[in-house]
Amino acid sequence: MSEALEAYYAALERLKKRGSKINNDTVAIEAGNKKGSIKRSRAVFEDLIKAIDAAAEEIAEKRAEPKAKIKQLTDDKKSLRQLLDESIEREINLLDEIYTLKAQLEAYTAGKIVQLKGGRDTSRQ
């Protein structure tokens, strides 16, 4: 492998470690050459270009992962917020029902308690 190709491969590895945008021009510039020095028409660069394309795809996938995770977390947050709102609504309805039942109980027990025939007064236990 020629010295120039080794420089290009070393530049590609540095860009991969940094997570920078990778394409033929960025590899060439990182290697200390001019933009456009890596040409698809030259057979000597065939393997290098394949490596650059693979690395670019890998970096693109890594950059997409956090965006997908953020979207998933946002969706989860909306779902949890909806569940919370529904549970609060249920609790308010139950509290309203308890209040109504307590009011009814108070109305029934406000007067004298009449003991039914044959029944026991269990309130004195």
Rank of each mutant, 00 (worst) to 15 (best):
A64Y: 00
K50E: 09
E97H: 04
K39R: 11
E91Q: 08
K112E: 12
I88Y: 04
K50A: 12
E58Q: 10
K77L: 14
A110E: 06
K50M: 06
A64I: 00
V114C: 12
I88S: 03
L48R: 08
A64E: 10
G118C: 09
Q115M: 15
N33F: 14
Q115T: 14
T100G: 01
S87K: 15
L105W: 02
K39Y: 01
D96G: 13
I98Y: 06
V44K: 13
K71G: 03
T109N: 08
Q115I: 15
Y108H: 07
T109C: 09
I113M: 11
A60S: 11
S79L: 14
K67D: 05
V44R: 12
R42K: 11
E86A: 12
G111M: 05
K35C: 05
L94G: 03
L105E: 05
L95M: 11
L48A: 05
D53Y: 01
I88Q: 08
R42H: 09
E86R: 14
K39W: 01
I113E: 10
R120P: 02
E65C: 00
S79D: 13
N93L: 07
I38W: 02
D75S: 14
P66H: 04
L116F: 13
E61I: 09
Q82R: 15
I52Y: 02
Y99T: 03
K39T: 09
D47W: 05
A54D: 08
P66K: 06
L94N: 11
K50Y: 02
L83K: 15
I88F: 04
A60R: 12
L83G: 10
N93W: 01
K112M: 08
D76G: 13
E89G: 12
S41H: 04
R63P: 00
G118V: 08
L105G: 02
S123E: 11
D47C: 03
L48P: 07
K102I: 00
E57M: 04
L101Q: 06
T100N: 06
L84W: 09
S41W: 02
A107M: 06
R40C: 01
